[in-house]
């Protein structure tokens, strides 16, 4: 074929130019992604005085002096502990309840399934953040109702019940609930792929559904449980909008709330502010460095259609 041959040198030139342009665009975007983060980390190792004089370059004197101050001021030892509780607790809750419901939706026949499952799938697209005001009213009113109830029953003499609002349990409930729609969709679709013959065989052998869940479905669902965990861990750890309105006591706050405090209080103490920001991003950055492959795969698998 003479036609393509004639075009060959021009094509090759275009190829080289295209490659160059591709590397340039990719490089610029990657540089823009990483430069601010590197700058942030470098700045956290400068004293506030040095930052005033040297805002861009490497620190002349590397110092970690900002970290103990920021750590103490932000009460980060308390907050990081809370973040661990919320993230682990909610992730385990989401996994357990979504596989449990997913098993029922996928393998037990019921006329309720289309409506229930359908409404979960619909919920994937509705973000709970836009409902934070009614959610706040709901949790505080539930606590007031419980307080009244306990007073009538004589369990409570005075004081207030903090069961939903301003409690770890309340935060966990809301977090698990908000993670369920996507997780239930993923689990149900996954469990549908487990052959029904396995369930039937166990039924004929006399196993109850709970035994089948415990000894057959749960072990077989480890891959989807991993995906659900990966999908939720970073989001839960970084969650701000909901916990911001759900708790008011410092003992219950999570890491992002602690970092946010540094916007208003300390605008002139640059060193501490940078250290707080680095403390805020370090855990997930390490998690990412450790599990990058799994995270990427989980995200690609979890971005589901509604």
């Amino acid at each position: 074929m003479p036609e393509p041959l004639k075009n060959q040198p021009a094509k090759r030139l275009m190829g080289v130019l295209g490659k160059g342009a591709s590397y340039a665009v990719m490089g610029i975007f990657a540089f823009m992604t990483i430069a601010p983060l590197v700058w942030l980390i470098l700045s956290s190792f400068k004293s506030t005085t040095e930052f005033r004089l040297n805002r861009v370059g490497l620190p002349h004197i590397w110092t970690t002096i900002n970290y103990p101050g920021a750590w103490k001021l932000g009460e980060f030892s308390q907050l990081i502990g809370n973040s661990f509780i919320y993230t682990l607790g909610a992730t385990l809750g989401i996994i357990f309840f979504s596989i449990l419901a997913g098993f029922a939706f996928a393998k037990i026949k019921s006329r309720a399934t289309p409506i229930l499952y359908g409404s979960f799938v619909l919920g994937i697209l509705l973000s709970i953040q836009s409902l934070m005001v009614p959610l706040f009213i709901e949790v505080s009113q539930l606590d007031r109702l419980l307080t009244d109830l306990f007073r009538v029953l004589g369990i409570l003499k005075n004081g207030q019940v903090n069961f939903f609002y301003d409690s770890r349990f309340g935060v966990l409930l809301i977090y698990v609930g908000s993670g369920l729609p996507t997780a239930i969709y993923l689990s149900t679709e996954y469990i549908k792929g487990i052959p029904y013959a396995l369930v039937e065989a166990a039924r004929i052998d006399g196993a109850t559904y709970f035994k089948i869940f415990r000894w057959l479905i749960l072990p077989m669902s480890v891959p989807i449980a991993t995906t659900v965990a990966i999908l939720n861990i970073t989001g839960l750890w970084n969650e701000f909008a909901l916990i911001n309105i759900l708790v008011s006591r410092t003992q219950l706050k999570s890491l992002p709330l602690g970092v946010f405090k540094f916007t208003s209080n300390l605008t002139s103490d640059w060193g501490k502010q940078f250290a707080a920001l680095v403390i805020g991003m370090a855990p997930m950055l390490l998690f990412y460095i450790g599990f990058r492959k799994q995270i990427t795969k989980g995200v690609a698998a979890g971005a589901v259609k509604g």
Binding site: S98, L100, A101, F103, F105, S110, V176, L180, T208, Y209
Partner: peptide, 21 residues
Amino acid sequence: AYWTMVLPAVLLYLLVLGFPI
């Protein structure tokens, strides 16, 4: 069995989405 398995998820879902709406 069906309802015991589905109910916790449904209640949580109502708590975070149904009732607030």
